[in-house]
Design a protein around this nucleic acid. Structure first.
Lengths: 174, 174
DNA sequence: TATGACATGTAACTAGTTACATGATTCA
DNA sequence: TGAATCATGTAACTAGTTACATGTCATA
């Protein structure tokens, strides 16, 4: 049944938007995807090789310094649509931050409070970053802007939720 | 610097609460941890072996059918506290659900709306499950109850956030 | 001419999943 | 006695990380 392989689909999704090299993709992952689906350079080049072998992308042009610009193929688009529509996305992912909360009984209440407070603080910092980011992008009315805004809004709501939870939780540990 | 290895700490955290066998732990992971840090049987037995070699747990008693009951050692408790207090928990984890939202431009608006709506629906179902769970547990005033309630509350708030976001997002895709 | 950005790739490792394999004990 | 549960373990795989390795091109 082929496992999950979401990196594959992240790459296909980006190339569906526009062609690019591994190097391009790496920067796109760093810029737009860092908080949703981080990927390393190693992984990216490996996946591009596999996708080419599988016929889901092909080399559109070769540039200087060995640059290979990839374009998604019709098979690649079909696989992307299949994943978007037919494959179950699964539940919420592992959370190391929450895992710790379970075990805070192993440290002093003051340390536990400190940990929860720091979760709130990092959520607040993330909220600020996302607000800035939102202001710095000039949103068009294309699909990318539309769905990008949905993701950004999710991040903002998530961060606000976590900050509010932390404020509440700090009081519980007293 | 030893990587993240949160499974190791999840096991230590559970054994810090009370001793148990691999089989016990597996059921505890299924019951209490399924949504925060799922683990497979394979991984669990492997990790128990490594933790024993590392001197962080030891066999307290052997029972029928080869059962080995493990207890955390002082070294194990120290490692757990170290992880809880000193190690940076890192940002929000990968989210396959959100990753898809980025790429919904590749399918029809109706399909995109359907996907977002299904995210809302699964969040609603999770909210209900968590409400039921909360009602079914008789909470004491021990540490486990306290921190368990914090985690449950986080889950409820997360689910509510996702449901509300989805309701909002469905309207945006129109 | 040397620095920094561009550009790709491999090796060795850790983490996690799925499937297989085996056997003991309980109880209907 | 047969099925369910208890109980542990291994093999083969996929996914992801870190470090290493190499070389090109633009420009100050």
């Amino acid at each position: 049944m082929m496992g999950h392989m979401s990196l594959r689909h992240a790459v296909l999704g980006m190339l569906a938007d526009e062609p690019g090299s591994g190097y391009d993709l790496l920067r796109r992952f760093e810029r737009a995807m860092a908080n949703v689906w981080p990927a390393t350079q190693s992984q990216l080049y490996g996946e591009l090789g596999k996708l080419e072998t599988a016929g889901m992308i092909h080399v559109l042009a070769e540039g200087p310094r060995g640059r290979k610009e990839y374009e998604i193929t019709e098979a690649g688009r079909a696989e992307l649509r299949h994943w978007l529509v037919d494959v179950d996305p699964g539940g919420p992912p592992r959370s190391a931050a929450l895992l710790r909360v379970y075990f805070l009984g192993s440290v002093s209440p003051a340390q536990a409070r400190g940990y929860v407070a720091s979760m709130g603080e990092s959520a607040r910092a993330r909220e600020e970053r996302l607000d800035e980011l939102e202001g710095s992008i000039d949103w068009g009315d294309d699909n990318q802007s539309l769905y990008g805004r949905l993701v950004l809004e999710w991040g903002k709501r998530f961060s606000a939720m976590q900050r509010e939870w932390a404020e509440w939780a700090v009081k519980q540990v007293e």
